[in-house]
Design a protein around this nucleic acid. Structure first.
Lengths: 141, 141
DNA sequence: GACGTTATTCTACAACCGTAGTAGTATTTT
DNA sequence: AAAATACTACTACGGTTGTAGAATAACGTC
């Protein structure tokens, strides 16, 4: 049985999971290769196995021992975990207020034209959605 | 000397820091009281002292040993740390793209009318800022 | 200035994470 | 089937964080 919250991962665990998401499934060797290929810090084969196995224990990965080398697959989608992570983050640092983080992100750095448009579109969609649903109390005053 | 990155805190450490930010400075006893007051899990006095002392070692807190009980103050503003945290988060989970997180936040949950307006205002400000800076001849002398 | 109270320091420990070696098991090659 | 190779399981260890007890030091009071 899984022991902990799905979003409870160390940074390295997360990196490996990322690799697994990218290729849907992989062996320890493949994960190692992918990791070492991109990172400056090289890991040992056994390190990867240890990490992978721990993640299986946590319920984050599934392992197919049908034949060797074993095959690992994420048992959680990137989307699920990301959602959880964002929720946790906002909850921890912004008292659960999505807006506060969003505002900060928007205000903080320069955005590309495209980014602005995307955000405006998203807001627009919100407004129309609200109008639809919100008929009864839509007016104040 | 500080040993680590300022944003490197465990969740409990963060909670205590939060209390310190709220009241600018406090003794261990005050921090303990504030914490136990709000949380379901009660801490021991010595636990708080340990945490506080560690944070001093990390350079996150400063301690005034002028008289007992000692007085602790954050040596980092909430703003500084929050900024760092957000940067790290976006960097880890959104490849450094602020927009991607912002978009997700906006699309995700229902927003209040007010929130939408705030976001729109922020975007608006961006656009005018861009126009200013982007005008030909808008160089400074 | 001895006593009780309050605060601090030191020490400890378990869980978790990054890290990896060693030993044993399976697979492939000859 | 023996040898070489590849893979896995087990074990270990240092650092960090949450947790706190024991020992010690400081302080106020009588």
């Amino acid at each position: 049985m899984p022991t902990k919250k799905i979003s409870d991962l160390g940074p390295l665990e997360h990196s490996l999971l990322d690799i697994l998401w990218q290729r849907k499934q992989a062996t320890a060797g493949e994960v190692l290769a992918a990791y070492n290929d991109a990172a400056d810090k090289l890991l040992a084969y056994t390190t990867v196995i240890t990490l992978l196995t721990r993640m299986v224990d946590k319920g984050i990965l599934r392992v197919d021992k049908g034949r060797q080398p074993f095959n690992f697959t994420p048992s959680v989608t990137r989307e699920q975990l990301l959602r959880q992570r964002v929720r946790d983050f906002v909850s921890t640092f912004f008292d659960g207020q999505n807006v506060d983080l969003a505002l900060r992100l928007v205000e903080d750095e320069p955005l590309t034209e495209e980014a602005i448009q995307q955000l405006e579109a998203a807001l627009q969609k919100h407004k129309s959605g609200r109008k639809q649903r919100g008929r009864k109390g839509a007016r104040k005053g």
